[in-house]
Each structure stands twice: as C-alpha cells, then as structure tokens.
Simulated scan of single mutants.
Amino acid sequence: MTNPAEILNLPKPAWAADEVGMLYDMAHRFMSEEIAPRYDEFEKNEMVDRESWLKAGSAGLLCASMPEEYGGSGGTFAHESAIIEAIGHVGVDGFGIGLHNSIVAPYILHYGSEEQKKKWLPKLATGELIGAIAMTEPGAGSDLQGVKTRAEKDGNQYKINGSKTFITNGQLANFIIIVTKTDPEKGAKGTSLIVVETDEVE
C-alpha cells in the first residue's frame, strides 16, 4: 500500500508544464497559505468562512472553467481538476470548491437562461454567491426517483416543502439548487431543479 506522504513525490503528469500545471501550483500555494493554517477552526465550525471564499474568487480559483463573458476564467475541466487535486494534496478537502465549480456553475451554464447566466455566474466566480445542491433526503438518499420534496406553483413562485441532508457548503451557501418534484405523476420527468437565493428569501 502506498504511503500517502509518497504521493506528493510522484512524477507530475504531462500537463503540469503548461497553464494547468501553473494553476495547480497557484491553488496548492493558496490552500497551503490561506486555508490549511485555519483548517482545524473550519472543521470545528463545519464550514470554510465567507472571507476565504472571497479570497479564492479573487485568486481565480472559482469557476475556472466558466466562460470569461460570465466572469469565469475560460478554462476547461482540466483546470478544475488541478484545483481539486491541490485541495486533496494539501488535505483541506472540506473546502467545497469542487461542487461549487464543477456541478453548480455548469448547471447554470448549460440549463440557465441568458439572463440567469449573466446574473449568477459572475457572482459564483467571485464568491459572492456560494453554491450548494440540496439533493439527498433522509429517507431516499441520493435516489432521485425517491425524492419526496415537493414544489407547488403559487402565483409566479413555488412553495417548496421537504427535508434535505448532507448538503455540501450548506451551512454557508446562499445559492442552492434544490432537487424537487414538481409533477410526481411524471416520474423522472416530473423532477425539477429549482434555484433558491437565500439572501433574497423573505
């Protein structure tokens, strides 16, 4: 079995000589200097504080694969992978950048309207918005067919009722994608993703 300490001494992959490798080095340095010294505190509080998210945004570590026109860095998933690898190597894997960058933001890019992309993606890139996905439920796990959360139309809004658990970034997130049933009779086709900006909830 490989000693974890030896992993850091493995030869770097071929891409490490290009801009992806440079991003890895930058992310590794950021995590080592900004997150690791306070990681015990973050673990105790069960969240990385908002200031650190804003610093990560300023350092270009949020939404690296999002188009520049929406505030991202215009990279690819290789860039996101470099950031995730740096987080793992430094040992600060409780910092939920991976979900924020590689799941939440792409949902908006691929399924959001142009208005939504322009409104949300730049704020996700700066850390002003912190993303989370409320999917897992106490009785259903991550089985989307078993989701019991319901969203019912109320005028031009929805009322959502249900319970979720194990929400990465959930303690601090102010931009949450909720998996809910809007039409239980249609099975998978009646399952929807509804965005909630908690700062705007009355």
Rank of each mutant, 00 (worst) to 15 (best):
P11V: 11
G139M: 08
K189W: 10
F95C: 04
M1P: 09
L54H: 04
T165C: 10
M66D: 01
F77S: 03
D40E: 15
L61W: 08
K119L: 06
V179D: 05
A59W: 11
N174W: 12
E80Y: 08
G127H: 08
P184Q: 09
T165I: 11
N45P: 01
M47L: 15
Q171A: 08
T168K: 00
G190H: 11
G139D: 10
A27L: 01
L23A: 00
P122T: 15
E68P: 03
R29M: 00
D199S: 07
S192Q: 04
M135E: 14
N174T: 09
T136K: 14
D40G: 10
I177W: 02
N9L: 07
L129M: 12
G91A: 05
V104M: 10
N101S: 10
H28V: 00
W53T: 11
L62H: 10
Q157D: 13
G190V: 09
Q116Y: 02
D49F: 08
G21C: 07
A56G: 12
K118A: 15
P13V: 07
E34I: 08
V90S: 15
D199G: 06
V104C: 11
Y70L: 04
N45R: 09
K12I: 02
G112A: 05
G72E: 03
F166I: 10
E85V: 05
D154W: 03
G190C: 05
D93Q: 12
F175A: 14
I178C: 15
G187M: 01
G71D: 01
V147I: 04
